[in-house]
């Protein structure tokens, strides 16, 4: 179980999994709009809805990586658009901290993103997912040494 994939096979079978925490009011609505307008993006993302991106505890992000997530997205309303006045400002601060922390822990910066996605930005949601999947395909699975 420890070694499940042969590095040679990775290119073809590596199927990265992304956890995306989306706020109910903007980003989740943006993800819905991508659907309404039938934009196509890779199937790798699993969305967890929260009321506000400010609810996303850095511990959730760490937990996701610990459980094998290849990438994590925290998505909220654009600055000044927050449904709860300024929850996303807290997200932004925690995002900066997490980005640095994860990098120090040996994770590539492409694996964790804080994104502002409005309810009208279905395209942006699809693009963010697409881009991360592409980047993860290049990176491959998280290496054992990385998780120091």
């Amino acid at each position: 179980m420890e070694k499940e994939a042969d590095p040679g096979e990775e290119q073809s079978t590596y199927d990265p999994k992304i956890i995306a925490f989306c706020c109910n009011w903007c980003s989740y609505a943006g993800a819905d709009l991508a659907g309404t307008t039938r934009l196509q993006y890779p199937t790798n993302v699993r969305i967890i809805r929260v009321m506000c991106s400010g609810r996303v505890d850095p511990a959730f992000v760490l937990k996701a990586f610990a459980l094998g997530a290849d990438g994590v997205i925290v998505a909220g309303c654009h600055p000044s658009d927050c449904h709860y006045i300024n929850g996303n400002e807290k997200t932004a601060m925690r995002g900066t901290f997490l980005t640095e922390f994860l990098e120090e822990a040996g994770l590539e910066p492409q694996r964790f993103k804080v994104e502002w996605i409005a309810g009208s930005e279905g395209r942006k949601f699809a693009d963010v997912v697409k881009r991360m999947v592409d980047e993860l395909q290049v990176l491959g699975p998280i290496s054992e040494e990385g998780e120091q």
Partner: peptide, 13 residues
């Protein structure tokens, strides 16, 4: 959400 965030956005898969 298996429509807006699944069947609609992964129609070819």
């Amino acid at each position: 959400n298996i429509r807006d965030q699944c069947s609609w956005v992964h129609r070819m898969q």
